[in-house]
Computed example of a mutant assay.
Amino acid sequence: MIKVHSLADVQSEHIGEGSTIWQFCVILKGAIIGRNCNINCQVFLENDVIIGDNVTIKPGVQVWDGITIEDNVFIGPNVTFTNDLFPRSKRYPEVFAKTLIKKGASIGANATILAGITVGENAMIGAGSVVTKNVGDNEIWYGNPASHKSNITQ
């Protein structure tokens, strides 16, 4: 069963079983959301967005065209994604940059992910970080600008 709060504006029909969408979300028609996702209040998902299975997106996050979030990813509150490195009012690129957040990654609250970045599998991004470069699998990055601090050992 899919749970959609009565105060959410959900235009997409591509939402997986077991997902919950909370109040004041806006999900545009082309967005794809996997199974067992938790899309918290005040989240905006644009059209060319793919969200995998078992993803948690906390409040205050906007996911713009060109962003893919794979399975088992955690996106903390107020994480900021971008999709245009040279934005100008009323001037749009022919194609928005593609950003990929790979399986099992976690992005801490208030982090900023610049357009065209790949965050590797099981990587962790610290709260408040500004990610300007690709992050490898199992790496921990934080700071402004974020840099590689260590690896996750399991």
Rank of each mutant, 00 (worst) to 15 (best):
I67T: 12
A31Q: 03
Q11V: 01
L7S: 09
I140R: 05
V130Y: 14
N138K: 12
Q154M: 11
A8F: 04
V131T: 02
T80N: 00
L7C: 03
V73W: 03
E70Q: 14
S19T: 15
A97Q: 13
T56G: 07
E17K: 14
N36M: 13
Y92P: 15
C41A: 15
T99K: 13
N36Y: 07
G18L: 01
A123K: 07
R91T: 15
V135R: 09
T99M: 09
E70P: 05
V43H: 05
T118D: 10
G108N: 00
C37V: 13
A31M: 06
C37K: 09
T112I: 05
V55K: 03
G76T: 01
I39Q: 06
A127N: 08
I57Y: 02
A105V: 09
V73F: 00
E70Y: 00
S106P: 00
I67P: 04
A123T: 12
T20M: 14
K58H: 09
T132L: 02
F44E: 10
V130K: 11
T153A: 05
D65R: 07
C25H: 11
G108S: 02
S106K: 08
V49R: 01
V119A: 07
S150W: 08
N83W: 15
S12Q: 06
I140L: 13
G108A: 00
A111T: 05
E17C: 14
K133C: 04
T132F: 00
G120T: 11
K102W: 03
G52K: 01
I113P: 04
T56C: 08
G76H: 11
V63N: 00
I21V: 11
A109V: 10
I39V: 10
V79F: 02
K102A: 04
E13D: 08
V95P: 09
A105G: 07
S147N: 15
D84P: 13
K29L: 02
E70V: 03
K29T: 04
N36F: 08
A97N: 11
A123W: 03
A111C: 01
F81E: 02
V10I: 06
G104W: 06
P77W: 09
V26I: 07
S19L: 11
N134R: 01
T132W: 00
I67A: 04
A123C: 04
V55T: 01
V43S: 13
V4C: 08
L100R: 11
E94F: 09
T20S: 15
N47S: 15
